[in-house]
Amino acid sequence: AGLEKQLAIELKVKQGAENMIQTYSNGSTKDRKLLLTAQQMLQDSKTKIDIIRMQLRRALQ
């Protein structure tokens, strides 16, 4: 149950990062740093999601 909860949280983080990227990508240059931060968050989240999914698969075997 813990892994499913972690996965749900990470999927929400990923969605939030995608929303932030959309918001900041057509903003001013001061938003550039926020855009880069959001892109890093998205990448980190995708990595965590992959790891959690692997752990889930392993647990189900």
Rank of each mutant, 00 (worst) to 15 (best):
A1D: 12
A1S: 13
A1K: 14
A1M: 02
A1G: 15
A1L: 00
G2K: 13
G2T: 13
G2I: 04
G2H: 14
G2Q: 13
G2P: 10
L3P: 01
L3I: 11
L3W: 08
L3H: 10
E4D: 09
E4G: 09
E4V: 04
E4A: 09
E4C: 02
E4F: 08
E4P: 05
K5L: 03
K5V: 03
K5D: 08
K5Q: 08
K5W: 02
K5F: 01
K5N: 05
K5E: 13
Q6I: 11
Q6N: 09
Q6M: 06
Q6C: 01
Q6T: 07
Q6W: 02
Q6G: 07
L7Y: 09
L7N: 11
L7F: 05
L7I: 10
L7H: 01
L7T: 09
L7W: 00
L7A: 07
A8Y: 00
A8T: 04
A8P: 05
A8E: 10
A8M: 06
A8H: 08
A8N: 07
I9T: 14
I9G: 14
I9C: 05
I9S: 14
I9Y: 06
I9Q: 13
I9L: 12
I9K: 15
E10G: 03
E10Y: 05
E10A: 07
E10V: 02
E10H: 03
E10F: 00
L11C: 06
L11F: 03
L11R: 13
L11I: 04
L11D: 08
K12E: 11
K12S: 12
K12H: 10
K12C: 10
K12W: 01
K12T: 08
V13A: 12
V13Y: 01
V13T: 11
V13E: 13
V13G: 11
V13F: 03
V13W: 01
V13I: 09
V13H: 12
K14W: 00
K14Y: 08
K14S: 10
K14Q: 05
K14G: 04
K14L: 07
Q15W: 00
Q15G: 07
G16V: 13
G16N: 14
G16P: 09
G16L: 13
G16A: 14
G16K: 15
A17T: 10
A17L: 15
A17P: 05
A17M: 06
A17I: 12
A17Y: 08
A17R: 08
A17S: 08
A17G: 07
E18L: 09
E18F: 03
E18D: 08
E18T: 04
E18Q: 08
N19G: 08
N19L: 10
N19P: 06
N19H: 09
N19E: 13
N19C: 06
N19W: 02
M20F: 03
M20S: 06
M20A: 09
M20D: 06
M20T: 05
M20W: 01
M20Y: 03
M20I: 03
I21S: 11
I21H: 04
I21D: 14
I21V: 11
I21R: 13
I21A: 11
Q22R: 12
Q22D: 11
Q22L: 04
Q22V: 06
T23I: 10
Y24R: 13
Y24W: 01
Y24D: 13
Y24K: 13
S25W: 02
S25M: 06
S25I: 03
S25K: 06
S25V: 08
N26M: 05
N26R: 11
N26Q: 07
G27L: 02
G27P: 08
G27M: 02
G27R: 11
G27N: 10
S28N: 10
S28H: 10
S28Y: 01
S28Q: 11
S28P: 09
S28I: 04
T29I: 06
T29F: 08
T29M: 09
T29R: 08
T29P: 10
T29K: 14
T29W: 10
T29S: 10
K30G: 08
K30W: 09
K30L: 02
K30N: 13
D31M: 15
D31F: 15
D31P: 15
D31Q: 14
D31W: 15
D31Y: 13
R32G: 05
R32A: 07
R32I: 04
R32S: 08
R32W: 03
R32E: 08
R32V: 03
R32H: 10
K33C: 08
K33G: 10
K33N: 12
K33H: 03
K33D: 01
L34D: 01
L34M: 12
L34T: 02
L34P: 03
L34A: 06
L34G: 04
L34W: 14
L34E: 05
L35C: 01
L35S: 03
L35N: 00
L35R: 07
L35A: 03
L35M: 06
L35T: 01
L35H: 01
L36E: 13
L36I: 11
L36S: 14
L36N: 13
L36H: 13
L36M: 09
T37A: 12
T37R: 15
T37P: 02
T37C: 11
T37Q: 10
T37N: 01
A38Q: 00
A38G: 03
A38E: 00
A38P: 00
A38K: 00
A38R: 00
A38N: 01
A38S: 01
A38I: 15
A38T: 01
A38M: 11
Q39P: 00
Q39S: 04
Q39N: 03
Q40A: 08
Q40T: 04
Q40L: 01
Q40K: 12
Q40F: 00
Q40E: 03
Q40V: 03
M41K: 08
M41W: 13
M41F: 11
M41G: 00
M41A: 08
M41D: 04
M41L: 13
L42H: 06
L42T: 00
L42I: 04
L42G: 00
L42V: 06
L42N: 02
Q43P: 00
Q43E: 05
Q43Y: 03
Q43V: 06
Q43F: 02
Q43H: 10
Q43A: 12
Q43N: 06
Q43L: 05
D44W: 15
D44V: 12
D44L: 09
D44P: 02
D44I: 08
D44Q: 13
D44Y: 13
D44T: 14
D44S: 15
S45P: 00
S45G: 09
S45E: 00
S45M: 15
S45L: 15
S45Q: 01
S45V: 15
S45D: 00
K46S: 04
K46P: 00
K46T: 05
K46I: 05
K46F: 01
K46G: 00
K46A: 01
T47V: 07
T47W: 02
T47L: 08
T47G: 12
T47P: 01
K48S: 00
K48C: 02
K48Y: 01
K48V: 04
K48M: 04
I49M: 01
I49E: 00
I49Q: 00
I49P: 00
I49T: 00
I49F: 06
I49H: 00
I49C: 01
I49N: 01
D50M: 07
D50E: 10
D50Y: 01
D50W: 02
D50P: 00
D50R: 14
I51H: 14
I51D: 07
I51P: 00
I51G: 15
I51W: 15
I52T: 01
I52Y: 00
I52C: 08
I52R: 01
I52A: 04
I52F: 08
I52E: 15
I52P: 01
I52M: 10
R53F: 11
R53W: 14
R53S: 04
R53V: 04
R53H: 01
R53N: 04
R53I: 06
M54W: 06
M54L: 12
Q55C: 02
Q55Y: 12
Q55M: 06
Q55T: 08
Q55P: 03
L56I: 07
L56C: 12
L56H: 01
L56M: 12
L56T: 02
L56Y: 00
R57L: 04
R57D: 02
R57H: 11
R57Q: 10
R57Y: 03
R57M: 07
R57S: 07
R58C: 02
R58I: 03
A59M: 11
A59D: 10
A59H: 10
A59I: 06
A59C: 13
A59L: 11
L60S: 12
L60K: 15
L60N: 14
Q61Y: 00
Q61T: 07
Q61V: 03
Q61L: 15
Q61D: 01
Q61R: 15
